[in-house]
Design a protein around this nucleic acid. Structure first.
Length: 152
DNA sequence: GCCAACGTTGGC
DNA sequence: GCCAACGTTGGC
């Protein structure tokens, strides 16, 4: 089993949106970055755990735990001209973008803020806390996972 | 709202 | 294949 961190903007799709979905499950669509795509497509497996992170908001941080409910499959929003994620260069015969389904496991008791995460020496290697890193999906090591959970 | 950092695009 | 221009991300 793998561990991940996935970013989402709470104004667009936050932890409470996920909690309100049927079966607490939603498609994680709209990823349009190749490095992140490769992880969605090739590495994520059903049952993998992930931290749900709120980005681009007043208090960025980890707010919940979710799991992969369906492994990578083509992101059909790339072929929908009405979608804001439409990518005319994505060919249905050779899908360029992928998504997974994510199911909420639980909300954390509190927001573990980016500021706190930055202060932990054992988390210094996470792309999340490194300046300028914009990956919206990233792997988390078992050690990092435990260290973060211990902060809750 | 600002802007640094970074990824992508496209002319050459 | 280089690299400048441009668009996006995301913390602050």
């Amino acid at each position: 089993m793998n561990y991940w961190l996935m970013k989402s903007e709470p104004d667009v799709f936050g932890i409470d949106h996920l909690a309100g979905r049927p079966k607490h499950t939603e498609q994680w669509d709209g990823v349009r970055n190749y490095q992140a795509r490769n992880m969605l497509r090739d590495q994520m497996q059903v049952g993998d755990q992930l931290f749900f992170y709120h980005s681009n908001c007043k208090e960025p941080g980890i707010v919940g735990i979710a799991e992969i409910a369906r492994a990578g499959y083509p992101d059909h929003t790339a072929w929908d001209p009405e979608s804001k994620y439409y990518d005319p260069k994505s060919d249905p015969a050779a899908p360029r973008w992928y998504m997974v389904d994510v199911r909420l496991v639980r909300k954390l008791r509190r927001n573990i803020t980016l500021e706190e995460l930055k202060q932990r020496p054992e988390l210094a290697d996470m792309p999340l806390v490194r300046r300028g890193n914009r990956l919206s999906v990233m792997p988390v090591s078992p050690q990092e996972w435990e260290a973060i959970l211990a902060l809750e």
